[in-house]
Design a protein around this nucleic acid. Structure first.
Lengths: 339, 339
DNA sequence: CTGTTAGCGCGTTCAC
DNA sequence: GTGAACGCGCTAACAG
C-alpha cells in the first residue's frame, strides 16, 4: 500500500482506458457517458481510491464552492446553532463552509476577511464587529457577495436579523404588565446596532407607559455591581425589574448579582437572547430567543442566490423573537417546566 | 471601478515591468529582490488591489496551508475555547482552519472526512465520533496527518486528551473526603473511551474506600429521572452525592432534578467538564475543567510537525484536569466567589 | 538579482 | 459518445 502520491484524473483515465475528459464528465454525473465506459471508470476510481482535487477544480471553474462564515466567536447557543444550520444548508447545496472568528476585534476582522478573500470563497456570511462599515468590508472583499447576519451593515447588503426594536418593546411590555414601575435596562458599551434598537424599543414601551427610562451601560464588573445595587436598593422607588439587552450582558448581570448576594428571586428579570442554561437557574430565566436556524437558512439561501449572480436589490429580512416565559419575569414557575 | 475580474500575478508583473516570478518572490517576502524593483511591485499591487490566489498556489506547491478541524459540534465551552485557540495558533503559523462538525454521527463524520480530503487539508484535528476506528479514518484520509483530540483513536496516532481516569478518581475522592458514603455516578450510553476511563477512575476510588459502585447509564430523560429519584430517595442508604461523567450528562441531570423538584442543595454534586454557567447555579457547581487552550496548542504544534514530515513515533499527550471547587460538592460557598 | 518556461489537476472547447 | 489540446494562477527550475 505504497501511496506515494494521490491518483489524478489521468491515472483513472489510463486505468479505464479512456480519455481524461470522459472521466471528468462521469465524476460530475449527469453528462452522457455510455454505460459500459461508466462501469469501467467506476471500477478504476474505486481501485485507485481516486478523489477529485477540489483545488484544481476550483481553479479551473473559478468558483470554490466554499462559503465563508465570519462570526465573533462560537461560544453561545445562538451562534452555535446558527453555525450548525449554516453548515447543514450549505452542504445540501454542495458547498463547504470555512468558519473563522474575529473575537469582536475590528483589526482581526479585516485580516480574516483578507484570508477569506484569498481563499476565493464564493460568498460570505458575516456578523460584523462593532463600528464596521460596509466600505471597509468591500475594500477587502471586492464584489464577493456578503450577507450580514444578526447585525446590520448598511442597506446595500442582504441581511437577516432579529426585529430588535420589537424584542425590546415586547420584553418591556411584559415587565410592565407584571406591574413593575421601575425597570432598569442594562446594555453593553459596544456600538452595536442591535443593542441600540433593543434599547429603543424598550424606551418606546416605557414612555408609552409614562415610566422613566433608566439605563446602565455596563463598562466593567465593579461599576455594574455598584450601579445595579444602587438602583435596586435605593429607598425612593427602587427598581424591581431588570432587562438585559444581550447574552453577554446577562452573564455580567448574573455575575454581579451573585457577587452581591442578591438572589434572582428578589427581582424580576428578562434577558434578550436565550441562554442554554436559562431553565436551570432558580428562578428560571425568561428570555427572548432568536430563531437561529431560520436566520441561517435564509442567509444561506440568499447568499447562494447571489453567488449565481442574482442582481435584485438587497433584501433585509427581519424576524421576530420569541418571548420564552419562564419564572424570572414573575410568571408562574410551573410554566418553566416546558423546558 | 469596473472590477470585472481579479488581477493576477501577471497583471502585476506587467504593471511593474518585471517578470512574474519576481513578483512571486516579492509577495512571499524574504527572497532577494532589489529595493527599486520591490518598490515598483509594491505600487503595482496596491494600485491593482492584487491578492494572491491561494487556490492556485496550493495547487502548485501541493500543500493547502489549511488545517481541517472536525468536531462533534461547537456548543460547549470546552470545544468553543479549543476552536478559538486552534484557529489562533494555526494563524500564527500561516495556516487557515476549515472547521466542520459531525454531530456525533459516524455517517456524517465519514462524509466530512471525505470533504476535508478533497479540500486537500494538510492535516486534521479530529474529535472522533463514538465507535470510530482508525481504519475507517485512514481509508478516507490516506496518509494525511491526523491528531486525535479529546478522545483516543488507537495508539498509531498522535493524540491529546484529559487524564480521564485521574479525573474520575480525583472527583470521587473529593466526594469521599466530604464523607459521602453513597455516591451515584451517571454516564452516557455512548461508547466513548473518555467516559469509560472516567468511570474506571471512579470505581477505583470507590473500591479503595470500600464503597459500592452504583452507576446510572442515562438512556432517556424519563429513565434518568426515575433511577435518579430512586437512588436519592430510597430508605436504606440513599445516595447523597452525584458524579456526572460529562457535559451533556450534567445537563441531563440538571434537567431531571429540576423536573422532579429536587434542589441542588439537597445533594452533593461534581461534574466532569466545566460549564460556562457553573458559577451561576445555586449552589454553584464544582467541576473538573479541561485545559482546552493547552490541548489546542499541543494539537496544532504536533500536527504542524507532522505536516512537515516528522516521522517520530506517535505521541499521546495526557493532561490533568483541574478540580474547580465551588459550592455543590459541599465546600464552603464562599469559595465560589472566585469565579 | 531577474526573466522564461513548464507544469500542478482539472474542465472545457472542438474536432473526430 | 469520446479524446486531444489548452489554460485557470501560481511557483520551481533553470538560464541569463
Amino acid at each position: 500500500m505504497k501511496e506515494i502520491k494521490r491518483p489524478t484524473i489521468i491515472d483513472v483515465a489510463r486505468a479505464a482506458k479512456v480519455g481524461a475528459s470522459t472521466v471528468s464528465r462521469h465524476v460530475r454525473g449527469g453528462k452522457s457517458v455510455s454505460p459500459a465506459v461508466a462501469k469501467r471508470i467506476g471500477i478504476a476510481i474505486a481501485q485507485l481510491g481516486y478523489e477529485p482535487n477540489t483545488l484544481a477544480r476550483s481553479l479551473r471553474v473559478g468558483r470554490s464552492q466554499t462559503l465563508g462564515v465570519l462570526f465573533p466567536h462560537v461560544n453561545n447557543v445562538f451562534f452555535g446553532n446558527a453555525i450548525r444550520t449554516i453548515q447543514f444548508e450549505a452542504r445540501r447545496s454542495g458547498f463547504t463552509v470555512m468558519l473563522l472568528t474575529h473575537q469582536e476585534d475590528a483589526q482581526l476582522q479585516q485580516e480574516q476577511l483578507a484570508s477569506l478573500k484569498r481563499s476565493q470563497v464564493d460568498g460570505l456570511i458575516l456578523v460584523p464587529a462593532a463600528e464596521t462599515n460596509i466600505a471597509q468590508v468591500r475594500a477587502i472583499l471586492g464584489n464577493t457577495p456578503v450577507v450580514a447576519f444578526d447585525r446590520p451593515l448598511g442597506n446595500a447588503l442582504d441581511s437577516v436579523m432579529l426585529d430588535n426594536e420589537m424584542a425590546g418593546l415586547r420584553a418591556t411590555e411584559h415587565l410592565l404588565w407584571h406591574k413593575h414601575r421601575h425597570i432598569i435596562s442594562v446594555t453593553a458599551p459596544y456600538k452595536l446596532n442591535p443593542l441600540h434598537s433593543r434599547l429603543k424599543g424598550h424606551k418606546e414601551a416605557m414612555e408609552a407607559a409614562g415610566r422613566k427610562v433608566e439605563t446602565i451601560i455596563w463598562a466593567d464588573s465593579e461599576q455594574l455591581k455598584r450601579e445595579l445595587c444602587l438602583a435596586l436598593k435605593r429607598k425612593r422607588g427602587p427598581a424591581t425589574a431588570v432587562l438585559s439587552m444581550s447574552y453577554s450582558v446577562t452573564i455580567a448581570i448574573l455575575s454581579a448579582l451573585r457577587d452581591r448576594n442578591i438572589r434572582l428571586d428578589q427581582i424580576a428579570f428578562i434577558g434578550i437572547d436565550d441562554l442554554e442554561f436559562a431553565s436551570f437557574l432558580d428562578p428560571s430565566l425568561t428570555t427572548v430567543a432568536q430563531p437561529a436556524e431560520q436566520f441561517a437558512k435564509i442567509a444561506v439561501e440568499q447568499l447562494l442566490k447571489r453567488t449565481t449572480g442574482a442582481k435584485e436589490s438587497p433584501v433585509q429580512v427581519t424576524l421576530p423573537g420569541t418571548l420564552i416565559l419562564r419564572a424570572s419575569c414573575g410568571c408562574d414557575p410551573a410554566l418553566s417546566k416546558g423546558r
